[in-house]
Computed example of a mutant assay.
Amino acid sequence: MKYLIFAIALVLASCAQKPTKGTSESPVVARKDSQKAKLTQQTVILDVRAPFEFNMAHIPGSINVAWEDFSRRSPDYRGLIEKDLHPIARRLALVGIDPQTPVLVVGKGLAGKGEEGRVAWTLESLGIQNVQIANVEDFRERRESHEMQNKTFWTPKLDESMFIGWDELRAKIEGTTYFPSKARRKSLGAGALPIKDEYYVVIDVRSKEEFSIDNLNKRTPRQFRFYNVDWREFLTENLDPNPAIMKTLNEMGISQNIEINVISNHGVRSGTVTWALRKLGYTKTRNFAGGYEAVRFNKK
């Protein structure tokens, strides 16, 4: 008899209504507990993958962009940020981004070419204060209700501490004085004078294979502090800035007080590294956005 009662109890338990699952307040749910991206209903998600990959599968509500959308069209200088910033700011405002908007940039992670970090570096250069990056594969494609709200057009102001131009970088490498403008150079009425600048380094963040084929040392006989460190070493698998790189830099004699100038082919991977290093406290890190494509040494 007691076995019959036990069987009936099991049947009744299986028929009982299951408790309702609560919904998450976060618009996107991370797959990995170690993922540090903090998301709110106000977060705008930018997806930097190719349009085909984005259309195949993406986080609902995310917006497909390319790093080139914020750069010049000239083939020789496509790594440089567009001169006229107002059209960029208007486009960002139309998708709900202003300087206070939290933004998450997602892409292919370490399997890509640093596009997430390049866009993050660009946005921060324009004054966007809260930008994160992540691998799109670290998120389930589920998003709570999210309505895109346009923001009021805002006036961007480029943070010049985030990048270095070729004229200035070349002056450092060649040991000459950098004059900010042709007008000032003409007013001084003399050629550039030699200077001694020991408080800067240049880091090439391309692969060892690319570095072995062509690098700044092969383009100029000038000796300067120049290193090759692959861009992936500056990030964790979750695209967080990698604290382990600080030990590597310390062994090279690179402290947080030294100006670090970062270079890659088009300023994409170097933009990612600049973004990561500044998050780690290397606030004097600058991206040479033009990359090797814009390197032009004077031929004598």
Rank of each mutant, 00 (worst) to 15 (best):
V262A: 01
S270Y: 13
W121Y: 10
E233C: 08
N228D: 12
R232V: 04
E141A: 15
F179C: 04
A111T: 12
K113I: 13
D47C: 12
A57I: 03
E233T: 13
P156W: 14
E259R: 00
R143I: 01
G114R: 05
R31D: 06
L10I: 13
S181D: 07
S14N: 04
R91Y: 02
F153S: 09
K108S: 07
Y199Q: 14
V229G: 08
V48D: 01
E82G: 07
T43N: 10
R278N: 13
I173Q: 01
R31Q: 05
E160C: 09
S71M: 14
V262R: 00
K151L: 00
N238Q: 11
G79D: 14
K172P: 00
I213Y: 04
R91C: 14
L158W: 10
V28P: 00
G253Q: 03
V268T: 15
V95D: 05
A244Y: 02
M1R: 05
E259Y: 00
K113M: 08
K218I: 00
K18M: 05
K113N: 07
G109C: 05
V44T: 02
K36E: 01
S212W: 01
T122C: 06
N215E: 12
V295Y: 11
L235H: 02
R269Q: 14
L280T: 09
L85E: 12
D214W: 12
S161R: 14
D33I: 04
D47I: 08
E251Y: 03
A89V: 03
L249N: 08
F70L: 05
A111S: 09
Q149T: 10
R269F: 06
L110I: 07
T220S: 14
A171H: 14
F163N: 06
R278P: 01
A16P: 11
L85M: 13
E116H: 11
F52D: 06
L158I: 05
D167M: 02
F297P: 07
F234L: 04
N265Y: 11
Q149Y: 03
E174T: 13
D197R: 04
K299P: 05
I8M: 09
V28I: 15
P102Q: 08
A37I: 03
S161P: 07
R278D: 05
K196I: 10
F224Q: 07
L104P: 06
R219P: 03
N257E: 15
N257V: 04
R185Q: 10
I81M: 12
Q42T: 15
I45H: 07
S181E: 06
A190T: 08
R269P: 06
K32A: 06
D98R: 12
I59S: 14
